[in-house]
């Protein structure tokens, strides 16, 4: 059997292959069950991402907040016209999937946060309809689960990454953890504060983003 599709997978799913490359990929898929399964998985993840991207948050909390404080809708960074590429390879699908799981659980977080890294939507308030603050534990529970999973995945990939990179990532994660602890403590003291809640969430987002990026890094050699 010829070589698996490997890094051509995402290009195939994106529809970027043409001519010989496309024909070759299709010929391989016709005979390779593993690659067919990988394509299905990748399409599922991409489909989920796209669906989430277009879907309003499960509970759009902003209207009640806006009404209460007389403010306009917060800035949301658009994805823009740039076509997103989903450059996942098979071993990295898990990281993408986990990020998407967190995204589903998070509700108010958009796909752009994960799939267009670096875009920084304004943090959304975490106050429930009616203006009642949700407990910090509720707010962060969905993040905690996703973070735990991604940390586990990253742990299994330590051997794939060079030690300097692992150190840099771990140092950054410690810095983010300190920031999360400070933000969490501030929210516990003042659970109704819109800025503090948003800041806690954006810092958790940052940790998820770093973990996701780290879990998806290519092997060192």
């Amino acid at each position: 059997m010829d070589e698996h599709l490997g890094e051509r997978l995402s290009a195939y799913v994106d529809g970027d292959l043409e001519g010989e490359a496309l024909a070759g990929a299709e010929a391989h898929l016709a005979t390779c069950e593993a690659c067919r399964a990988a394509v299905q998985d990748l399409r599922r993840v991409v489909g989920l991402a796209r669906a989430l991207d277009d879907r309003p948050p499960a509970a759009d909390l902003w209207p009640s907040i806006a009404e209460r404080i007389g403010a306009a809708r917060p800035d949301v960074v658009p994805l823009g016209s740039r076509r997103r590429r989903f450059a996942f390879s098979i071993p990295q699908l898990a990281a993408a999937g986990l990020a998407l799981c967190a995204l589903s659980a998070g509700g108010a977080v958009t796909a752009a946060r994960f799939l267009a890294p670096g875009r920084a939507p304004a943090p959304l308030a975490l106050t429930a309809p009616g203006g009642v603050a949700r407990p910090v534990a509720d707010v962060t529970a969905s993040y905690d689960a996703a973070i735990h999973e991604l940390e586990g995945l990253l742990s299994t990939r330590r051997g794939d990454l060079d030690s300097a990179t692992v150190r840099a990532v771990e140092t950054s994660l410690r810095i983010i953890d300190q920031a999360i602890a400070q933000a969490r403590a501030a929210v516990e003291r003042d659970p109704n504060d819109v800025y503090l809640n948003g800041h806690l969430r954006s810092t958790l987002d940052r940790k998820l983003d770093v973990l996701r990026r780290a879990a998806m890094l290519p092997r060192a050699s």
Binding site: G80, R82, A116, P117, G118, R119, A164, T165, A168, V169, T171, S172, V210, R213, A214, L217
Partner: peptide, 21 residues
């Protein structure tokens, strides 16, 4: 980059730049 520096000059359009450390 993850741990390297990133320097961009003279860019037009839409630019995403980032590094972890």
């Amino acid at each position: 980059s993850v741990s390297g520096d990133v320097v961009v000059a003279d860019a037009r359009g839409r630019l995403e730049v980032g590094s972890t450390s």
